[in-house]
Design a protein around this nucleic acid. Sequence first.
RNA 1: GGCGGCGUAGCUCAGUCGGCUAGAGCAGUGGAAUCAUAAUCCACGUGUCCGGGGUUCGAGUCCCUGCGCCGCUACCA
Length: 688
Amino acid sequence: MESKQRILVTSALPYANGPIHLGHLAGAYLPADIFVRYHRLKGSDVIYICGSDEHGVPIMLRARAEGVSPQDIVDRYHELNKKSFAAFGMSFDFYGRTSSPVHHRTSQDFFRRLNEKNIFIVKKEKQLYDPEAKIFLADRFVRGTCPKCGYEDAYGDQCEKCGSSLSPADLIDPRSAITNAEPVMKETVHWYLPLARFQKKLEKWINEHQDWKPNVLGQIKSWFADGLKDRAVTRDLPWGVSIPEDIAREHGIDASGKVLYVWFDAPIGYISATIEWAEEKGDPDLWKAYWQDQSTRLIHFIGKDNIVFHCIIFPAMLMEHGDYVLPENVPANEFLNLEGNKLSTSRNYAVWLDDYLQKFEPDSLRYVLAGNLPETRDADFSWKDFQARHNNELADILGNFVNRTVTFAHKYFSGKVPPLGELDEMDRQLVEKIKTYPSRLGELIEKYQFKNYIREFMDLARFANKYFNDKEPWKTRKENPQACATTINLCLQTAKTLSIVAEPVLPFTARRIWKMLNVENSQTWDDATKLTLDDGAEIQPAEILFTKIEDDVIQKEIERLQQAGAPNEQKAVEKKETEMERISFDDFKKVELRVATILEAKKVEKADKLLQLQIDLGEEKRQIVAGIAQHYSPEELVGKRIIVVANLEPAKIRGVESNGMLLAASDSEGNLTLLTVDNEIANGSKIS
RNA sequence: GGCGGCGUAGCUCAGUCGGCUAGAGCAGUGGAAUCAUAAUCCACGUGUCCGGGGUUCGAGUCCCUGCGCCGCUACCA
C-alpha cells in the first residue's frame, strides 16, 4: 500500500531499583507496544528497543542498605522486569541494560566525541573528598550535623529531620557516609554540557515540531522560558560508566572514581541496546540504519517526568554529536492515579506488574489501561472499572461474539466456514465495515490516539453483535438456509478482522482466535480488510476467551490497596522507634518547655506554611513563627493554650523574628495537631 | 508566595482551527430476542460545560478575574 517506513521506537529505560507498576505501563510501555505491533502488522521496518537503567546514586544507596553490591541490585531487577514485561506481552526487539560492556563503550565513545568537538565546558571546583576511600563524595554521601535543627545524621543535600535543603559545606562536623572519615575539600574537575549555548538551536528545532502533543510542547516552553542552565555530565561516584582515561589524562586528572552522570549515559542506552541487537542478529552494522539514516523515524515513548531529557537534553547531545537522527516525536503521557490517589512506591500504594500477572490475564490489563491512558491529562485506574471493562466489554461483547459465532458454526455447519451467498443490504453494510475499519483504527494509532482506537475497535465488535441479532440466523436456519450460511460466514470473517485489529492491544487473545479459525499466525493488517476465510474451511471448537471476574476477587485487590498505605507506615514508624537514639536526663533538662497562650496570629507574607504568633509566656510576651498555616487558621488559634520551647535560640524566618518554637504532633500522613494542657494553668508554667 | 496544569452527565472520560438542538461507555429504567459466557440488541439524559466578567454574529473552546484541586518550587512541624 505504501512504501516501507523505517521506525525506531524506544520506551524509557526503567530504573533498576524496583519492579514495574501500572504507572510505568500506562506512561511509556503499553502505548509503545501497541504502536510497534501495529507497524509490524503493517509491514513497516520497525524495531522496539528498551532496557534497564542501572546506574546512579539511588541504586548505590540501596545496595549499601542491603549490604550487597550495586550489581546484585540491578541484576535482580533487570531479570524481574525483563520477565514481567515479557509475560505482559511487551514485544521488545531487544531489552538491554546499561551495565553491559557495549553500553559502557558506547557512552564513552559518545563522550569522547563531544570532548573532541570541544562541546563541553570543563570547570574546576572544590568538593568534599573522602581521603580514606579515596573518592569524592556526592552530596548524599556526606553526613553531619544539620546547622538548622542540630540533627546529627543529616545528608549533605537535605536534612531528613527538619527537611531543609542543604549543601554539604553547611554541615557541622561532616563525615563520609562510606568510611566515617572527615572529608576534606579537594579540587575536582567536571565536564558541563552548555545547554544555554544550545537554546536557540533547540528552540528552532522544536518549532519544526508543532504537531507534538500540547502537553509536551507546553512543558518544553516553560523550560525555555526559564532559560536552559548548563548541566554537569560527570560525577565523582564509584558506580557508573567511567570517564575515558585518555580524556582525563588530557586534563591532568585521575579518572578513577569519575563517571558519567546517569542522565547522560541512560539515553545513550537506547543506542547501545540497538548495537547489541544488531550483533545478536549477526549483522553488527545494522544498527546504523536505524540511528544514522536520516529517513528513520525515531520515536520516544515516555512519561511526563522525562520530557526535559528526551525533548531537550538528549536531542542536544545528539545534535552536537552530529551522526545521529533526532526524535520525530516524543508522545509523552501524563500520570496514572490509583483509586483516586497518587501512586506511592515507598508506601507500596501501587499495582505491581509481577503481582498482577499472578492473578489475571495480561490482555485484560492491556485493554483496560489502553482504554483509559493519561493521554492529555492525568487519569485514574480503579479495580471496579477494571472488572467492569473486562466483564462488559472483553467477555460480553468481544468474547461472546466470537463464542456465539464459532459455536453456531459448529452446531449447524459441522465446524466449517459456510458458503457466502448473495449479499443483502445488511450484509453489505458489514462488509463495508470490514473494509474501512482497519485503516481508521490504524490512523488513530499513528496519531497516538490509543483511547480512540480502543473505543472504535469495541464499536466494531458491538456492530458485529447487532448484525448477528438483526439477521437472526437461528430463524433463517430453517426458513432460509442460504441466508443463514451467509450470515455465519460473514460473522466468522468479522471475528477474524476483529482479531487482527485487536492484536496490538490484545496479542494473546488475537492468537487464540487465529487458532480457533485455523488461520496462520502471520496475519497482516491488510488481511483484516478482506474476507480471507474460504468456504468450507475447517475451524476449531469454540473456546471461552475471557472468564468473568467475580466481585470477591476484585474486592480483595481493593482491600489490599486500602491497607497498603497504613500498615507500611506503621512499620516505618516502629522501625524508627527501635532505632531511636537515647538521651540522658541532663540532655532533656536543657530543653525549657513552657505553657503559653496565643494572643494574636497572622499569616506571614509570601509563605504558605508560616504563621506569625504573639504569645503570652506569663512574665513576658513574645513573637514566634510556626509552620502550621496549612492546618490552623489564624482566627481559630487565638486564645489557644500551647506548649513552646522557650529557650530555643532566636532565628529569622522569611524575615520575621522567631523567639521560640511551638510543639505539635504529626503523623506520617502529614496530619498535624497542637500540643496543649489538660487543665487551666498559668501562662509560663514549666513543663517537666 | 512564584511558575505550570486541571475543573464537562451518578462514575470513567471524548470534545480537533471558536460554528448546527454538548457526546461515548458504564451504571439506572422500560422493551425485543433466545444462537451465545443470564451473554446480545433497541429506546430513554431539564448536564448552571466550577462561579463572575469580557472579546465575537457566535465560546465548553480565546482573554481577565474569583474559587477549588494537582504538580514543581520557596519557606523551621
